[in-house]
Amino acid sequence: MLPLATYINMRIVIAKPGLDGHDRGAKVVSRALRDGGHDVIYTGLRKTPEEIVRIVNDEDAEVLGLSTLSGAHNSLIPKICEQLVHNRLGNVIVFAGGIIPERDIEFLFRSGLRAVFGPGTPTSDVLDFLNEALIRKQNGDPVGVGDGSGWNWND
């Protein structure tokens, strides 16, 4: 039997922070999540952290996926995570994808991320991650961006 969470659809924002004009990856992931039964809101290109946080709030999303290929992840992602917590959105599950070197991942986890997906990741991995995150959330484990360190998908 599939885990319970498979049957629950979530509202997910997929965002492109900063000056980065490539969104094929973001669109592939958005499509895969839709086909996995979720409601996906894609923000379009070049959003500031403030804009992304406002969209997550207004759409009342449970999950935020950040796609970055520009190399600015270490400055943009912590800023977004911080503002989410500041705006009472600390229970949002945040993950990232794109070009993010191995050595930066630990730092991003400390900012509140729960998964980082590199090039070549099968889209089913992202769905599996969301399933596991949701099961953990149901059990009261820390999975939100403001819940502090604990489980992450890549470990």
Binding site: R31, D35, G36, G37, D39, V40, I41, Y42, D58
Partner: peptide
Amino acid sequence: LSGGSLLADRIRMEGEDDLRENVFVRS
């Protein structure tokens, strides 16, 4: 088929920064 949806209409609706307090977009 999947029960999922892809909501991208808000891409074309974003207002300028200073108007944001007066604009609320929900898909």
